[in-house]
Amino acid sequence: MKKATLLLFFAGLSFGLHAQKIFSTTTGQIRFNASSPLEKVIGINNQVDSKMVDKTGQVIFSALIKSFKFENQLMEDHFNENYLESSKFPKAEFRGFITNIGTVNFAKDGKYTANFSGTLTIHSVSQKVSTTGEITIAKGTPTVNGAFKVKLADYGITGSYIGGKIANEAEVTVNCKYQ
């Protein structure tokens, strides 16, 4: 009887130690900013699909290009048709890890530095990227913030206005509040 109780206790302890939680959202936000001194080029996507594993730090951000909304419809059309070619390449994605996830205490509210490292795929071109962001824990719920500098030419994105009205390098800002 004692043996069985001990076994159950250790089994429970082991489960507790290894249990991992997957946080997810389908309404995260990504902001694409390729503004130049000549033109404001900002698109916001509020339908970002993201998952994060607390124990391993594995993280995925997926976005549909057609979900980026611009203030100017004509700019949105050009972004989709001439630059990102969203009918051919409908998705963009970051897959990687928060490499210092061990420093984040999910049970304690606060702000923690998060080092992201992984592969960013845009326009069907994949590049290794890394950046530093932040995880905010509030009542056990994490919110992830991070920003990537994206050189458009590195992802095969070309167009006559790049380097003029559109900046050569866009800033992609991620903000995902998990549920």
Binding site: T26, Q47, S62, A63, L64, K66, S67, K91
Partner: peptide
């Protein structure tokens, strides 16, 4: 709505 594609769900906006 306008179909934007498929992630975990099919997405419309």
């Amino acid at each position: 709505g306008i179909c934007a594609g498929f992630l975990t769900d099919v997405v419309l906006n």
